[in-house]
Every structure is written in C-alpha cells, then in structure tokens.
C-alpha cells in the first residue's frame, strides 16, 4: 500500500464522522422511505395494512398496464399541459407589466405576488365559492350564465368537460405569485443598457421582448418550467378540495397523485398498489426533469 493510499484510509473515520449527521437524516427520511415504498409496491396488504405479503415485482407492470393508471397519467399530463404554459405566459406577462419604473408599482408587485402567501386550502375554498353552481359568484352573473349554462347546471366543477380546466385555473392562480416573483427577479438581472441600446437602434416593444428579454430570461424560464411541471404532476390539495377526483364515474380529475392518496380513489384501501403508483410517478418525474434540462437546456443561454 502506498503512502498516499495509507493517508487516505487514515482520513476515513473523520470523513464518516463528518458525513454522519447528514447521512443519518438522509437515510432516515429519504433513502429508507424510498426503499420501503419500492418494496411495498410488490406487496398485497389487507385493508388495515397490518398484514402484507409479496406478490412479485409483476405488480408494477400490472399497475402500469391498468386502465386506471393510464387514465390518471393522461389526466395529469392534460393538467400539466394547461397549467404550465398558461401559468408561465401569465407570469411573464405580469412580470413584464410590473417591471416599470412607475409610481406605486410596488403595490401591484405585492398584489401579483400575493398568492405565494396563500395556502392551497384557502385558495381552493375561494375558488369553490367562485365556482359553486347555486350560490357561487359566477353563478350569479346572469349574462355569463346565458352564454355558458354549464356554470349553473351541473356546475363547472361537476361537468366532466370543464372540471379539469376549472381545477387547472385555480392551480394556475395559486402558482402565479411564485412564477411572478421568479420571473421578476430574472427580469431585474437583465442589464437596462441592453434594452436601451435596442431602443435607440429602433427596436419596438415586441422586438425588444423577443430579441432581448426572452433570450436573456432563458435560464429563469427553464427553471420555472421544471418547477411548474413538477408541481403540476404533484398537485393534490386543489383536486381533493374542489372535485375529489370526480366528477364520477368518469374520474376526469383523478390525477396520479389523487389516485395514490385521494379519499375517493379506487385503490384507496390497497397500500401495495398505492406504493407502486407512487414509485412509478417518481420515475416519470425523474425522466421528465432530465428531458427538460437536456432538451431545453441546450437552447438556454447562461450569459458570458
């Protein structure tokens, strides 16, 4: 054994001692539960989950092929396809509007970012009051009801065609504060001279937006897209409070998370299946984030 190697081995106890605390925390709260979930995913349990037995890893492929899981994935994808682009566009729009040197602009910035301080429960209840078909605010606007009778009968949250979009709107609203703050920070990182230079060179507002603002916002947009996608795939509170995964029997708002955890989920009393779905969701999200960073990351300019 060479001297250098010997010295390295001598450092091992110290290294273990230094890594110990975070290793313990990581193991107890991340690695062990993750491993346990993966293990649970191939078990079948009784209703109280007091007795479980292995039924083989084939349970994962059974879940993957099941109609319920595939429907939930499709609902989740639709939910993400609505919330991410719309949320991003609204966030960028509001941030650009508020990125002006104007009197009292701070008031609008506060308003636009206020939803970060609103819990999912409060936000969902508020939307429930807005959308409620008999006494809700929307239900009391006569002309709107004439154009969209669905508002009163059966109600936006109770119609299989509008339920998912309605939940998506509440989710977009709740996430808007976060998007607004991140994009505003990104905008403030763009040197003012770049905009001024383009302005003197004759670029109008739209051209400055597409040639200067958007490209330099690239890293911020990528980050926000990844976070919003991951949030869309994990959305639970608003679905639980607004639709309970319904309307039944189509289950048109049963997303993957709701399938795992929801109180009206078809697999609510099967711990093994729930674990299997959760592990599959983890794999999907991991793959999706990697795709986003690799696919979009190449087109993002990180400055000099």
């Amino acid at each position: 054994m060479s001297g250098a190697t010997k010295r390295r081995w001598r450092d091992v106890p110290l290294a273990v001692a230094m890594l110990g605390p975070s290793l313990v925390v990581l193991t107890a709260f991340v690695l062990y539960p993750l491993g346990r979930a993966v293990w649970l995913g191939q078990q079948r349990c009784n209703v109280q989950a007091t007795k479980c037995r292995s039924v083989g890893w084939g349970q994962y492929s059974d879940v993957l092929m099941s109609k319920e899981f595939q429907s939930a994935v499709w609902v989740t994808v639709k939910f993400a396809l609505i919330t991410v682009p719309v949320g991003l566009a609204l966030g960028v729009g509001l941030a650009v509007l508020a990125d002006k040197h104007m009197r009292h602009i701070g008031f609008f910035r506060t308003v636009f970012s206020s939803t970060v301080a609103t819990s999912v429960a409060v936000a969902s209840l508020m939307w429930l009051f807005l959308l409620q078909p008999s006494v809700g605010v929307l239900a009391n606007i006569g002309w709107l009801n004439d154009i969209f009778p669905v508002i009163k009968e059966p109600g936006l949250l109770n119609d299989k065609g509008t339920a998912l979009s309605s939940v998506a709107i509440s989710s977009i609203w709740a996430n808007l504060g976060f998007t607004f703050i991140i994009i505003t920070a990104g905008l403030q990182g763009i040197p003012r001279e770049l905009q001024e230079s383009a302005f003197v060179d004759g670029a109008g507002g739209w051209r400055r937006f597409t040639n200067v603002t958007l490209p330099l916002l690239g890293p911020t947009l990528l980050f926000t897209t990844v976070v919003l996608t991951s949030r869309a795939f994990q959305a639970y509170g608003e679905i639980d409070l607004l639709t309970n995964g319904g309307p039944v029997p189509q289950q048109s708002t049963t997303t993957v998370t709701y399938l795992i955890y929801g109180s009206s989920s078809i697999i609510k009393s099967n711990e093994g299946l729930k674990a299997a779905v959760a592990v599959l969701l983890f794999v999907i999200l991991l793959g999706l984030s990697a795709l986003q960073f690799r696919g979009l990351g190449k087109r993002v300019h990180y400055g000099s």
Binding site: P191, E193, E196, N211, P215, L216, H301, S304
Partner: peptide
C-alpha cells in the same frame, strides 16, 4: 454604452 450592451446570445 460603457458596459458595451452587447446581446450575449
């Protein structure tokens, strides 16, 4: 401009 204000992308 002093900072050149070139478009980095």
């Amino acid at each position: 401009f002093q900072s050149y204000a070139l478009y980095p992308h």
